[in-house]
Design a binder for these strands. Structure first.
Lengths: 351, 351
DNA sequence: AACCCTACCGAAAGCGCTTTCGGAAGTCAA
DNA sequence: TTGACTTCCGAAAGCGCTTTCGGTAGGGTT
């Protein structure tokens, strides 16, 4: 007797079929809800499958159907770690949404001597993933270019400069920073500076744009040196703050591209003998937990990462299910969390 | 003519073989370095494969070979997010190491109405993963029990109470806290308290054990209330600190299970009108970047997460390559980072 | 010149599924 | 009772690889 396929990881279709006295094809169709299977049979099959904990081999299934129900996610390049506090939440949301439809998530990293495109290409060529989710986009992002040219389904958490022809979910970074500046202005601040991030990164660029726009709309003077770009965490902030504090007049309010920068900025202000939240107000962005514990508690803005992950998951699935791939653009608003690092300036505004 | 297999995601073996005028089997063996292929042929095949960017379909390969070169990683349950600042580094290291051998990493999450074991079981039954890496272990961890009973290869980043019969990589949490207490003792502290974490979690339990052991070894009195377990971030710390500060005598030094707790503790001390690092010294654990920016900069301990991820990757691969699966136990030491939150107590030790 | 080896490659089976196709029962109307 | 449909299931091909098994051609021996 020909030995039935015995999968090391469980039962095989042939075993299940033999147990039921049915043909493999019949069992398969029953499990996949084909209309040409008697209701009674379908149920009998379903019960047996449940009883034995049968699950079709995903490799065999993929090979037979030619459909890849796995999405790829390439981790942001090393070094950027510290700046993405919510990776795990995004992954979590994404994976949960995918799992609900029996899809999987392959997470890949970029080794030292390779680049992101190579990694993605490998994944595609070997048929390991059929779509991608990417995050932390640069304004000109080679990953997006690659994906567009390969016409794989993909959705971007974030955006690029040109973002009309693909699906994305982003937070309105620009508006968030318009709001931050406007908030400080409402508090009485007139000399508002910004500690910006890597201008190649899209989120940093848009926050910068929001700052600039609000300054203009509010008729505030953008004094030379008030906008500091490409501020790196740690020493970068210390240097930038030294520059800002040496200015005459020095700013009374500073909007920071991230909480991490803001926390460093607050430390620098204190080291300069000033009181953060008094002589100089500070706002951040991210809603880090530690921001609430520092002195003064950081006024900041946050976004719902877990929910974003889930929504992105839904978008990817939608891309597959609709025959006519609908590209969708979703823009969420950041939530302002008022704490104590931003207050009316102690010196009356020059205005 | 029979149309050659045309993979949507690239070229197929049959196409490559036809192009070369060779049989599929020959090309396959050439690519896999079988000894029965002429050197010249092997090279010709390799060149063509490179030229066309050919990569074997992983699904077909897996099906034919029956080997699953994918490891599963189940994200820690939601809610624990904030307490794992280094997930992305671990994933990064792990994925990089795996990628070097063309292995993949599937990251799964646990949906609301399921548990970790179900998720893992699904992954195994459907042949999606052939081994697992798990992190953030509890002292009694059902995942470890599941994996042991299923005899899948797996390695644990962390440990459980019983940890002799599986491979793990862990940081010596106990020694780290012995060191922390000893350090405070060396500074002159005699009344040392601990803000501990979830005692179900193995790392928290071991840090607690380290505290206890050092207290005993150093002959320090463990005053009632000095050891606070199950302290949750935020409000939990505030409550715990209120209790500690109400004690008579109050501790002069506090070792905290994590930086996050320590940062909250420092805030509480300041709110109580005391100066952290003066009347009360504080140490943390994790080496969070923000710890360096707070006032006073946090004295803490850290571990190399990226490297840990890589090492765990190597361990998984080793489990597969050796016919006789070697279980290995690797214990790393935490690195002490001296900053300014721990200093000699202002009041002379009672000794 | 007949022999045996070795080196090398082709043929074919098989991995565990899905899906198309055809045909055997069963159903209904005439 | 016959014919025309339905309903339902089995058979078989095929997805893209890997691997075993032969078999042929060439090189060495005696």
């Amino acid at each position: 007797m020909a030995t039935l396929g015995r999968r090391a990881d469980g039962m095989s279709l042939s075993q299940l079929a033999e147990h039921l006295g049915l043909a493999e094809g019949t069992v398969s169709r029953a499990l996949n809800n084909y209309p040409d299977i008697a209701a009674k049979t379908r149920e009998r099959v379903a019960n047996a499958a449940r009883e034995f904990g049968y699950r079709p081999s995903s490799a065999a299934r993929r090979l037979a159907r030619g459909v890849i129900e796995t999405v790829g996610f390439v981790l942001p390049a090393r070094g950027a770690h510290l700046s993405d506090p919510f990776l795990s939440e995004i992954l979590d949301g994404l994976a949960v949404e995918l799992a609900a439809h029996d899809w999987d998530l392959i997470v890949a990293a970029v080794p030292e001597d390779h680049d992101e495109i190579e990694v993605m290409d490998r994944l595609v060529k070997s048929g390991k993933v059929g779509s991608f989710v990417i995050t932390r986009t640069r304004r000109q992002d080679p990953r997006v270019a690659f994906l567009k040219s390969s016409n794989l389904p993909f959705v971007v958490h974030g955006r690029t400069d040109e973002h009309d022809d693909y699906s994305w979910l982003d937070v309105d970074n620009k508006k968030a920073f318009v709001d931050a500046v406007t908030y400080l202005h409402g508090l009485g601040h007139r000399r508002i500076a910004m500690l910006g991030g890597d201008t190649e990164m899209n989120f940093a660029w848009l926050r910068r744009a929001g700052y600039l726009q609000a300054m203009e709309d509010l008729g505030l003077e953008l004094a030379p040196g008030y906008l500091v770009d490409n501020v790196a965490d740690g020493a970068g902030v210390a240097n930038a703050m030294a520059g800002l504090l040496a200015l005459a007049p020095a700013p009374t309010g500073i909007v920071c591209v991230t909480d991490s920068v803001a926390i460093d900025a607050i430390a620098a202000i204190r080291r300069a003998g000033l009181t953060p939240g008094r002589e100089i107000s500070v706002t951040g962005y991210d809603g880090l937990a530690t921001g609430a514990a520092i002195d003064p508690p950081l006024t900041t803005m946050s976004q719902a990462s877990y929910e974003a992950g889930r929504e992105v998951g839904r978008m990817i699935l939608a891309l597959h299910n609709s025959t006519k791939p609908q590209i969708s653009h979703i823009l969420w608003e950041a939530k302002l969390t008022l704490r104590a690092s931003a207050n009316p300036p102690v010196t009356a505004p020059a205005n």
